[in-house]
Design a binder for these strands. Structure first.
Length: 464
RNA sequence: GUCCCCAUCGUCUAGAGGCCUAGGACACCUCCCUUUCACGGAGGCGACCGGGGUUCGAAUCCCCGUGGGGACGCCA
């Protein structure tokens, strides 16, 4: 039988980093086994689901390149299927109507909490042989509950966490359909996983506690139980639970912040999974290597520094034309208009080694297309009186120099020698005057790209 | 409160009883390269939560603590 996995987000917000990793692992597991990866949108919470969130999830998946083989399926479009199953359960007695009001249930929960007990439904409307049910109240629309087994244990061999057993006594009769008739999460998941032929459920470990309920439901439906793999959660950089207050949580935020999808993918793959000492690999390689037994069962803390390191690696490897296209947009967004000259790809090639993000890269080469803001402290330190005459001489010489890095280098050397200076004595002020600051790649390479006219213009403007 | 899960350098991890003097990566520090800053190269610092077992032998297996996390909705 072919392996089938699924990613089943609820469209109540953007695709966050934890969800992206879950999707990645589900995707990779399916690919590894030449199976199918299904995308399912769990939108039964009509109050909180939005079309914008659906789009955000789709966008995030697309950016990462995690394409699904089937779907997206929308649960709200599968209501008929759920209804059918619920009716059959009502008929065969594995589900029943419950007329307890919300107020009643709230009071019950409070009382149980106060008595230091695990809050759970008391089974008031649960039919049993020889039990007389209360009179049906006229003013209450009932919900439908699953008749969960009272005794015994539910157990499964979790592919990440090992064997987990939970006593049925810990479970209660969960609501599978609301008063308005819409089915609830645990029920839809079960019907969908069954009807969509999902063989491996790979999801966040906040679902561990839902698993026994789902297994009981599946059993009641005479369905085969899929294999479960529960992934531990991802913690923020500070070790705290990921939340909106913890910076970039949306995957698309990483795009905006200048991260390459291959870097994010590579980083996420190594968060909670390993393949010996391998640190750098692409999506295809990951899919070939991926296995569930090398997943760490413990929570992993996000580390932006390592992501940046990977991002720098992929920036160094990227195709220059691809980077150029991206950088044009980023520069435009910060009001910098990229012109034909200086050559953008040359500028990028010169700076990519030192950029951790595309935003840094864009910022670092902006001075090629607009006058830089001069760092006053750097100017004061390097553009000193003792070198101004040498700099003027150099400017004159440069006006007659062939515009190649080699020739420029030779010209600087000539003035350096004539004035018995050291190379940096001239390189530093040139840096400040041309780029605005004291740090840059080789100054001759910078000048070669900046162009003769612009170089002379900037020097003269600051030297007179 | 009840149930469930987790526990190796600061962080991500290797490790399936002897290969461990606990390996790699990020970060940090030092040196080299050098035209400044990066990149790159070479080193360095740095961990098995505690206590009991089991075993000839335990980071690895078991138990108990401790610490962290999750779940307990007509949310997903």
């Amino acid at each position: 039988m072919s392996i089938r996995t699924r990613f089943a987000p609820s469209p109540t917000g953007f695709l966050h980093i934890g969800g992206a990793r879950t999707a990645l692992f589900s995707y990779a597991f399916a690919k590894k086994h030449a199976g199918e990866f299904v995308l399912r949108i769990e939108d039964t919470d009509v109050e909180r689901s939005t079309p914008e969130a659906v789009q955000a999830i789709l966008d995030g998946m697309a950016w990462l390149g995690l394409t699904h083989d089937e779907g997206p399926f929308y649960q709200m479009q599968r209501l008929a299927s759920y209804k059918k199953v619920i009716n059959s359960m009502l008929e065969n007695g594995t589900a029943y109507y419950c007329y307890s009001s919300r107020e009643e249930l709230d009071a019950l929960r409070e009382a149980q909490m106060a008595a230091k007990q695990k809050p759970r439904y008391d089974g008031k409307w649960r039919p049993e042989v020889g039990k007389t049910l209360p009179a049906i109240p006229v003013d209450i629309t009932p919900v439908i509950r699953f008749k969960n087994p009272l005794r015994g244990v539910v157990a499964w061999d979790d592919l990440v966490k090992g064997r987990i057993e939970i006593a049925n006594a810990e479970l209660d009769d969960l609501i599978i359909a609301r008063a308005d008739g819409t089915p609830t999460y645990n029920f839809c998941v079960v019907v969908d996983d069954f009807e969509m032929g999902i063989t491996h459920v790979i999801r966040g470990d906040d679902h561990v506690n839902n698993t026994p309920r789902q297994i009981n439901l599946l059993t009641a439906l005479n369905a085969t139980i899929p294999q479960y793999a529960h992934l531990s959660m991802i913690l923020g950089d500070d070790g705290q639970k990921l939340s909106k207050r913890h910076g970039a949580v949306s995957v698309m935020q990483y795009h905006e912040d200048g991260y390459l999808p291959e870097a994010v993918l590579n980083y996420l793959a190594r968060l909670g999974w390993s393949h010996g000492d391998a640190e750098i690999f692409n999506l295809q390689q990951f899919c070939e290597w991926f296995d569930l037994n090398h997943i760490t069962p413990s929570a992993a803390q996000f580390n932006t520094d390592k992501l940046k390191w990977l991002n720098n690696h992929y920036i160094k490897l990227a195709d220059l034309s691809v980077l150029a296209k991206d950088i044009v947009t980023r520069l435009a967004n910060s009001g910098v208009n990229v012109t034909d000259q200086p050559n953008l790809q040359d500028a990028i090639a010169l700076y990519r080694d030192r950029a951790n993000t595309l935003n840094e890269l864009a910022a670092s080469i902006a001075y090629f297309y607009q006058l830089p803001v001069i760092d006053d402290a750097a100017k004061e330190k390097h553009v000193t009186h003792e070198v101004t005459s040498a700099l003027n001489d150099l400017t004159d010489l440069l006006a007659k120099t062939d515009w190649t890095a080699e020739a420029i280098h030779a010209a600087i050397n000539q003035i350096v020698t004539a004035n018995t200076l050291k190379f940096p004595k001239l390189a530093m002020p040139l840096r400040v005057m041309l780029t605005g600051g004291a740090q840059s790649p080789s100054i001759d390479a910078v000048m070669a790209i900046l162009g003769q006219t612009e170089t002379l213009k900037r020097l003269k403007a600051l030297l007179n």
